[in-house]
Design a protein around this nucleic acid. Structure first.
Length: 277
DNA sequence: CACTCTACCTGTGCGC
DNA sequence: TGCGCACAGGTAGAGT
C-alpha cells in the first residue's frame, strides 16, 4: 500500500542516507525470485552489473533508477513498483536476508539494496527511457496545478473515487489517500465529476494538495502498524464504525467500485443533480 | 467510453 | 489448538 507519500519517503531514504545509493556502483545483482523481474531477469543482471546509480526519479508510485557506465554516457533505467507490500532499504552487506527478500543489488562501500516483498506483487523492469513509464501516467499528484486538475476533471463524467485511483488521470493516489482526500473535500466517493460545482472541484484540488503535502512531510501514513515510518494521521481509512473526527457520525466502510471505501455519510453526502454543475 | 471482473500473491484474522 | 477461508489492494487485460 505504499502510495505517493510513502514512495517519496523511500526515495528520500535512498538518496539522503549515508552512504547514499547515488554514486554507488553495482558489483552484483541477485534475483532471488524470478517473478520480481518483469521481462528477462538475465538481461537485468547483465545490464546493471558494473554500472553506477546516478539518479533516482519518482513519478506517481513508480521509481526510476538511472544507471550509467563509466565509459558510456547513455543511461539505462530500472523501473520499480512496490505495489502492495514492497519495501526498499540499504543495509550493510552480509546482513541476513529477510524471509521475503526478492532482489539484491550488492554495491560498493559495503552496502546492499534490498527489495523485500511478502506478497510478491512488486516488480522491477528495464526501460530505455523514463518516458516509457511516465507516458502512460497522468501528472504527478504532488505537482499537478489547479488549472490542469480543473480542466481535466471538468471534461470527464466519472465517479470521483475511481477517477482519483486512475493513474492516467493523476498519478500517485491509492485507496488510502483517495478516501482521505474525498473526506477532506466533503465529497461522496460516487459523486460524478462532471456534476460538481466549480467550488467543489476547487475544494477537491485543495484537499488533494493539502493531504499529499502533509503526508509527504510526515513520511507517509500511520495505519495501525502497517507502516512503521510515517505519522500522517488518517481520518477515515480503516476507521469504520468509529466517530467522524469532524461531526461524530460513525464512519461507514462499504465495498464501492471493487474497493474498500471509507467515508462519513454526514460530511460526504451523495448529491443527485439533474445537469452538469 | 465507462465500468466490471479476474488474475496475480500471501499474511492476517475470523469462525467453527 | 488448528483448520479453512475470506479478505486486503495496484495494475493489466479481458469482457460488458
Amino acid at each position: 500500500m505504499p502510495e505517493l507519500p510513502e514512495v517519496e519517503s523511500v526515495l528520500k531514504c535512498l538518496t539522503e542516507s549515508s552512504p547514499s545509493l547515488i554514486g554507488r556502483q553495482v558489483r552484483e545483482v541477485r534475483v532471488l525470485r524470478q517473478s520480481v523481474v518483469d521481462g528477462d531477469a538475465n538481461e537485468l543482471v547483465q545490464v546493471l552489473t558494473g554500472k553506477t546509480c546516478q539518479t533516482i526519479l519518482r513519478h506517481g508510485k513508480y521509481l526510476l533508477f538511472g544507471f550509467q557506465d563509466s565509459r558510456v554516457k547513455q543511461y539505462r533505467w530500472m523501473a520499480l513498483h512496490l505495489r502492495m507490500t514492497g519495501r526498499l532499504f540499504l543495509v550493510p552487506e552480509n546482513k541476513v536476508l529477510g524471509r521475503h527478500t526478492r532482489l539484491l543489488l550488492l554495491l560498493d562501500q559495503g552496502i546492499t539494496l534490498h527489495f523485500d516483498d511478502p506478497r510478491a506483487f512488486g516488480r522491477v523492469w528495464l526501460v530505455a527511457d523514463p518516458q516509457e513509464v511516465t507516458n502512460k501516467l497522468g501528472e504527478d499528484a504532488l505537482f499537478i496545478s489547479r488549472d490542469s486538475f480543473v480542466n481535466k476533471l471538468a471534461n470527464l463524467r466519472r465517479q470521483l473515487k475511481p477517477l482519483l485511483l486512475n493513474q492516467s488521470f493523476v498519478a500517485g493516489i491509492g485507496n488510502i489517500y483517495a478516501d482521505e482526500i474525498l473526506f477532506r473535500a466533503g465529497l461522496h466517493p460516487l459523486q460524478i465529476s462532471s456534476e460538481l460545482f466549480p467550488e467543489e472541484i476547487s475544494r477537491l484540488y485543495d484537499a488533494l494538495h493539502t493531504v499529499l503535502l502533509q503526508a509527504v512531510s510526515l513520511k507517509g501514513a500511520n495505519i495501525d502498524g502497517v507502516f512503521e515510518a510515517g505519522s500522517f494521521p488518517v481520518a477515515v481509512y480503516g476507521k469504520n464504525r468509529k466517530p467522524c473526527p469532524v461531526c461524530g457520525t460513525l464512519i461507514v466502510k462499504e465495498r464501492l467500485v471493487q474497493r474498500g471505501t471509507h467515508y462519513c455519510p454526514t460530511c460526504q453526502p451523495l448529491v443527485t443533480r439533474c445537469n452538469g454543475g
